[in-house]
Amino acid sequence: MGLAILVLIWLITFFSTYFFAAKTWWLPRGVSTSAPWIDHQFALTFVLMGIVFVVAQVSLGYLVWKYRARPSSGPVRYSHGNTTLEILWTALTAILFIGLNLMGSNVWAHERFEPAKAGSVPVEVTGMQFAWYFRYPGADGKFGQTDPKLIDPSSGNEAAIGLNTSDPAAKDDIVAGTMFLPVNREVDLTLRAVDVIHSFFVPSFRFKQDAVPGLAIRMHFTPTEVGDYEIACAELCGLGHYKMHGMVKVVSQEDFDRWLAQREADKQ
């Protein structure tokens, strides 16, 4: 029985660790400026927790087998514990966990404490059951007014987010169902939701943020490679949650400008 437990626990430990270490299933390749930092912190945490995991599970299996009751077993070690050991491992785990935390915190500070730098691309993301819309302010650099009463999801784009076309600032606003971004430029994101909470999740950018009704949440990130990336909604938003899917197309600055101009032309 002791041996069976040892074998089972060791096998579980081996297989669990193997698929992590072999990266059979792993984070997609990171294509934003913060991705390397996050991945580094991830790897560090993974190695440390992996060591603790393997040591704890292997010793559990070993101790159960080694000290199983047998007719030949000697008397047990009568002991109520060891204060020195207790203090030692309390201190060690405290240092490990809190230290790890502090190491990751500067990345978080950089991501969330500072606003986007000047010259970034402003984009407003609006989530609704069950679609994403992306708004660009146009040549004036200002987002026009929206009006909840004007929201008409069945019409799509401008009407879907209730753009108030009588506002002069709204005239040149562009609303699209696919997100276009220029490569290597910071994106100044504003997240909104019209009905329930949604979450804007792009695994390749290591980016996720809830879009909350009643809040306009400002975030920023910088994509670093041209390509198509998928957006998944990561907050339960209703029966169509699983198909609230979107695309980000990261293109060169020229292609981005050309796309914007094309959309402006289409509006006229």
Binding site: F143, Q145, T146, N164, G214, L215
Partner: peptide
């Protein structure tokens, strides 16, 4: 504070 939906 509460968001004014028109102006954001």
């Amino acid at each position: 504070p509460v968001m004014d939906e028109r102006s954001g």
